[in-house]
């Protein structure tokens, strides 16, 4: 199977047809939502928080963040700000009238919020895109470093971020997690169902050098 990020940059790949396919596939929706719950369990939120959703797409994770604790969202309902590079994906989120704020932005260009803005950040199936540089002017390393430096600064001390992503290989896994460590994060990689075709990789990040306990 060819990986979408090997072919086109996400803003071109997720055109209207692809965005629609992605959002209406119930299999993808189910996987996305279970990964969101998994990420939430790793964030340890206990009260309504301000959360950044990196690569929010059509708002599948955001809808879960907006749910209350009694609907199964730990600490919820949360208020979230999502950004995505695909305007078609955001268009679907607008149609669904998701509750979070949406921005058209490229995580590889940084995270334009003042220091200490967010209680937490979440990213589902997005940051592998950062490893692809689209023009000769930019490198994957530069995109990763702008993203993690910006993310680190935008989080409160003691905050956590969980990024589920699909690394192409071990080298890419190392490249991503070491970029996070260079930005100042405490970082751990967690793998569910390792070695199977359902393997899922979560990068668990902490701000302020706190130890990982989950």
């Amino acid at each position: 199977m060819s990986r979408p990020e090997d072919n086109l940059p996400p803003d071109l790949f997720y055109n209207d047809t692809e965005s629609h396919k992605y959002t209406t596939s119930s299999r993808i929706q189910k996987i996305q939502s279970s990964m969101t719950y998994r990420a939430l369990s790793l964030l340890h939120l206990t009260s309504p928080s301000l959360i950044l959703d990196i690569g929010c797409g059509s708002g599948l994770s955001g809808e879960i963040l907006s749910n209350s604790a009694s609907e199964g969202t730990p600490g919820g309902p949360h208020i979230w700000i999502g950004f995505d590079i695909s305007s078609s994906m955001l268009g679907i989120a607008i149609e669904k009238e998701v509750e979070g704020d949406l921005m058209l932005a490229d995580a590889g260009q940084g995270v334009p919020f003042r220091p200490g803005t967010f209680d937490a950040a979440i990213s589902i199936s997005a940051i592998q895109w950062l490893c692809n540089a689209e023009t000769s002017e930019e490198s994957a390393a530069g995109r990763l470093s702008r993203f993690f430096n910006g993310l680190y600064a935008s989080l409160r001390r003691g905050a956590r971020a969980v990024c589920q992503f699909y690394p192409k290989n071990e080298q890419q896994k190392t490249m991503v997690s070491s970029a996070a460590v260079r930005a100042g994060f405490g970082a751990g990689l967690l793998e569910d169902d390792p070695g199977t075709k359902n393997a899922k990789t979560y990068l668990v990040l902490t701000v302020g050098g706190g130890d990982l306990d989950g």
Partner: peptide, 9 residues
């Protein structure tokens, strides 16, 4: 309602 933060390189 969506702000465009995409910047030229």
């Amino acid at each position: 309602g969506v702000a465009n933060f995409l910047l030229p390189a």
